[in-house]
Design a protein around this nucleic acid. Structure first.
Length: 152
DNA sequence: ATACTGATTGTTGCC
DNA sequence: GGCAACAATCAGTAT
């Protein structure tokens, strides 16, 4: 087993302690991104006020926020839920059931997902830096042609 | 046919 | 300390 998780019975505290520079979108200097990006699909809607829909579906290059532990659990929960409830397809119903069970889950059970989410956040932070760097570099989406070959 | 909705919790940044 | 907003997903609804 991967006892990578720190044995700190305090999810919030643990993450809180870590100073994560996760700048989702500082309203101060975000103009740079919004200036060139933000290419609305066609309808030209800005769901900024509304959080319900894709909101950031216009995420061409911007790294979207990583799913939280709950979302990862949802993925796993949804599979099992659909198997036992094939008639339920909407995520809404699953989300309700999942949320209810999520609260009943113990910290040890949730910490697993917390750990994943934390790691993902770190990766997201890294992607954000890379994204910003690219923006400053020239935002030219033109990776090496025949310089670096993908081994994967 | 396409875009948007709803519902769940978590995380994060600002005031 | 608390609020606002956004993250995925998918069937259903609206235009």
């Amino acid at each position: 087993m991967v006892k990578k998780a720190k044995n700190s019975p305090a999810p919030s505290s643990t993450e809180s302690s870590r100073k994560m520079v996760l700048r989702v979108r500082p309203p101060q200097k975000q103009k740079q991104f919004e200036d060139d990006v933000i290419e609305e699909p066609k309808s030209g809607k800005k769901p900024k006020s509304g959080v319900k829909k894709k909101a950031a579906k216009i995420d061409s290059d911007k790294p979207k926020k990583p799913p939280t532990a709950f979302f990862y659990y949802l993925e796993d929960f949804r599979k099992g839920f659909q198997e036992e409830n094939p008639e339920v397809k909407s995520m809404r119903d699953v989300g309700k059931a999942c949320g209810e069970k999520w609260k009943t889950m113990s910290y040890e059970e949730k910490v697993q997902y917390y750990d994943i989410a934390t790691e993902k956040r770190a990766e997201f932070d890294r992607a954000m830096v890379d994204y910003i760097k690219r923006k400053e570099s020239g935002e030219d989406t033109k990776p090496k042609d025949s310089d670096s070959e993908y081994d994967e």
